[in-house]
Simulated scan of single mutants.
Amino acid sequence: MIIAMSIDATEEEIQHVVERVEECGFRAHISRGAERVVIGAIGSSGRRHELEALRAAPGVEDVMPITHPFKLVSRQFKREQTIVNVSGVQIGGPEVIVIAGPCSVESRDQILTTARAVRAAGAHMLRGGAYKPRTSPYDFQGLGVEALRLLKEARDETGLPVVTEVMSTEDVDLVAEYADMLQVGARNMQNFPLLRRLATTPRPILLKRGPSATIKEWLLAAEYLLSGGNENVVLCERGIKTFETELRNTLDLAAVALVKELSHLPVIVDPSHGTGRRSLIAAAAKAGIAIGADGLIVEVHPCPERALSDGPQSLDLTEFAQMMRGLSAPLRQLAPSTCVAC
Rank of each mutant, 00 (worst) to 15 (best):
95 E>F: 10
98 V>Y: 06
100 A>E: 13
101 G>E: 07
102 P>T: 00
104 S>C: 08
106 E>F: 11
111 I>K: 14
113 T>D: 01
113 T>Y: 00
116 R>T: 00
116 R>E: 12
117 A>F: 13
117 A>R: 10
121 A>R: 07
125 M>T: 07
129 G>L: 01
130 A>R: 07
133 P>Q: 02
134 R>I: 05
134 R>L: 08
136 S>W: 09
137 P>K: 09
138 Y>W: 15
138 Y>N: 04
138 Y>R: 12
140 F>H: 08
140 F>K: 11
142 G>I: 05
142 G>T: 13
142 G>E: 06
143 L>P: 14
144 G>D: 08
144 G>N: 03
146 E>S: 06
146 E>G: 00
147 A>W: 14
150 L>I: 08
150 L>E: 04
150 L>K: 05
151 L>R: 14
153 E>C: 04
154 A>W: 08
155 R>A: 14
155 R>E: 15
156 D>N: 15
159 G>I: 04
160 L>T: 13
162 V>W: 08
166 V>D: 13
166 V>I: 13
168 S>Y: 10
170 E>H: 15
171 D>K: 14
171 D>Y: 08
176 A>V: 06
177 E>V: 03
179 A>M: 03
183 Q>H: 00
185 G>L: 01
185 G>V: 00
187 R>E: 02
188 N>R: 00
191 N>C: 01
194 L>F: 03
199 A>P: 06
200 T>G: 04
200 T>W: 05
204 P>R: 09
205 I>K: 14
209 R>S: 07
209 R>T: 06
209 R>C: 15
210 G>L: 03
210 G>K: 04
211 P>N: 11
211 P>R: 12
212 S>N: 08
216 K>Q: 14
216 K>P: 03
216 K>D: 11
218 W>M: 08
219 L>E: 15
220 L>N: 11
220 L>K: 07
228 G>D: 10
